[in-house]
Design a protein around this nucleic acid. Sequence first.
DNA 1: CATGAATGAGCTTTCATTCAT
DNA 2: CATGAATGAAAGCTCATTCAT
Lengths: 225, 225, 225, 225
Amino acid sequence: MSSDVTSSEIPGTRWRRRKEARPGEILEAALRCFAERGFAATKLDDVANRAGVTKGTVYLYFPNKEELFKAVVRTEIVPNLERIESTVARENLSATEALASVIRFFGERFHKSRFAPLPKLVISESGNFPELARFYVDEVVGRGFSLIGGIVRRGIASGEFREADVESVVYCVIAPVIFATLYRHSIEPHAPGRPIPEDLIETHISLILGGIRRVSVTEGTEDEQ
Amino acid sequence: MSSDVTSSEIPGTRWRRRKEARPGEILEAALRCFAERGFAATKLDDVANRAGVTKGTVYLYFPNKEELFKAVVRTEIVPNLERIESTVARENLSATEALASVIRFFGERFHKSRFAPLPKLVISESGNFPELARFYVDEVVGRGFSLIGGIVRRGIASGEFREADVESVVYCVIAPVIFATLYRHSIEPHAPGRPIPEDLIETHISLILGGIRRVSVTEGTEDEQ
Amino acid sequence: MSSDVTSSEIPGTRWRRRKEARPGEILEAALRCFAERGFAATKLDDVANRAGVTKGTVYLYFPNKEELFKAVVRTEIVPNLERIESTVARENLSATEALASVIRFFGERFHKSRFAPLPKLVISESGNFPELARFYVDEVVGRGFSLIGGIVRRGIASGEFREADVESVVYCVIAPVIFATLYRHSIEPHAPGRPIPEDLIETHISLILGGIRRVSVTEGTEDEQ
Amino acid sequence: MSSDVTSSEIPGTRWRRRKEARPGEILEAALRCFAERGFAATKLDDVANRAGVTKGTVYLYFPNKEELFKAVVRTEIVPNLERIESTVARENLSATEALASVIRFFGERFHKSRFAPLPKLVISESGNFPELARFYVDEVVGRGFSLIGGIVRRGIASGEFREADVESVVYCVIAPVIFATLYRHSIEPHAPGRPIPEDLIETHISLILGGIRRVSVTEGTEDEQ
DNA sequence: CATGAATGAGCTTTCATTCAT
DNA sequence: CATGAATGAAAGCTCATTCAT
């Protein structure tokens, strides 16, 4: 648990004035620290260093460590949620297309966005922050399940998909995506010999569609990816 | 807090010698505490209380908190691994049957055994214990992947399964099982309104097999990709 | 505000076991620190040093600084209250005798007992601890006023004393006693040139009785003390 | 936090020069804060807020918190002292009249003027500011004692008052006045059920004169005060 | 073996103080 | 002059660790 976090900041002036930028910088630094070490193991000194400020400055913007954590979750989750939903809600796709597209979308999102470390954070800290778990269930799991559940149900209703327990299918759709995120932020960095396979997402899509679709997808799968 | 989870430590040391008499209650209690709160947030007082002893007693068996953590990982994971492998490795099953059986087996294991909280622990603490990640990759992920990868490869070779990226398929096979475990130990306790669906595992099996098997499981599925 | 509080403790073993004696020692040390420096300026390190323990030990017995403060007040005030009341409540004294005796009693009490620094503490900290003020008013001021007020009223009723506003008389009876305490614990230590006069209490008694008694005290004052 | 309340500090320093322009609001605000919470517990933010400026501005006029405190004492006490003395020192009053008048004068002063919170401040902070105690003794207690002591001595010499320990009498004269001030600023605000009696001062005067005057005041109350 | 009182390093938090604007 | 963002030393508090019993 070494605090090997060094500031990568303006070397000359140790004293700047950036009221506007500060909170964002601190939140970003905090997100990374929390994601790496967890809430309890994160020292405010590390967060401050990473943000290029001192401990005191953090307290200028956030009343305490817990509120900082909540602010991180709040600012990283909420905006992303909106974007995900609105993006995927574009209509006139078949259930098959919609499912493939939603998986692909999540896969990308979780790979690149700042949202990426969140699942790990939630898994790790739900024990210490029950509200975090509840919040996540309500806002993220709930919405995500509705979104995907809706597509699956639509596919079954239209005969595109075969009969199945919708809830369970949703789990199977989501799991590999989340799992990849968790793996990427926890294990992969320390196990360079075993990276996540390149075509995980596309394989996942084809497996899921193969498993759920009623009609053959033999030729359809080619252009699926 | 640096790492060597797998090393067997100064051999013949106090810890090793006393290990013989060590109450498994401490390890069990520690496993639960670590899984619930994470390493940093777990107080030795809590572990001791849960084990029905005093803090001092913990130090009789483990030289410090970090060694206790490593001991937890060592004693709770490794024995389980052996059993899993030997059980599933009995041959004369078709790839289909083997895959179904291995998923079912893991599903059970992760549901009931003391092994269950481990994934959460690894996800949460790999940042603070890089060796934990390495250990997990080598011992668990590696073995699991070999096991399942072997089955998949065999299925493809025999024509039972269609062509696919084996690594990716393994991920898709494992992910829902691990994900369910993580969910069960992090989120579910705080979100009673959204339990893991009963037939998740069976649905998963049927989806995966549907997705991977060459012959149709619907009606004309022989050409399923 | 220099922390020149040095432990006067057993020099050999820095490590002892005195669960029984500890809380009392800490309370005593705390009383002195609080009385000298006030609540805010008192460092727990000082209290600990004076009690011959370390900061951590203080927290073994008191959950935080504020509770320590309250405990000090509680343990120093309550027992003294009982004693004062019961002692003075001995009957069959004339109002004159009773008043003289009660003033003398308070004078002594405030001079020697551990109760002595309390008035200063209450005056100083009432702003930061409103409950302290309330408590003091209810338990100390209230009781004291009842006690003395009763005597005065009795004296007036019996014709021993002349008519007067009882409340005001009580203030005038109490004020020099309290004032002496406050002076002794705040100013006198730093102004050795101006000590409290030796016969303050007896002069006070004779003045008060001279002022309140109906019969002339011109010659009576001689034997008054 | 060491002491020299009376010293006029590095003469011609920043503080001294800027003193000319200094807003009395800061001193007034500081006096109130210090009196309410004590030196240590007073935050410069509070002082600044109360004075309607920012923290930085306080430092424009006072080099640090301690100097601010000293300036408060200096500017709030000293001028008042002068006025009091000169007012009461007009002669051609009998000792009885002079004593009554001086008590009344102090009673008023301590009730309304900015001088009022000072006694509480001295009582509370003498532990942290020994010089404050010394200053108070020299300037306030000393002068006050001379003033009142002179009157008492004159009364005794003239046969108006009976023989008594002058120092002790002075204490008894002063105590209720100071005590009322302390009570008013510490306890009364938090104990609305027990206000200081309206005619405390007049009762005090009549008790003291009754106690000290040679002639009986029992039936011959025409000279009551 | 087991206990639990005691320790002290380390972390969170506060706030007097500085200084670019 | 005035501001207020930023600082960092100091204090409160926690808890892994020790050790007399």
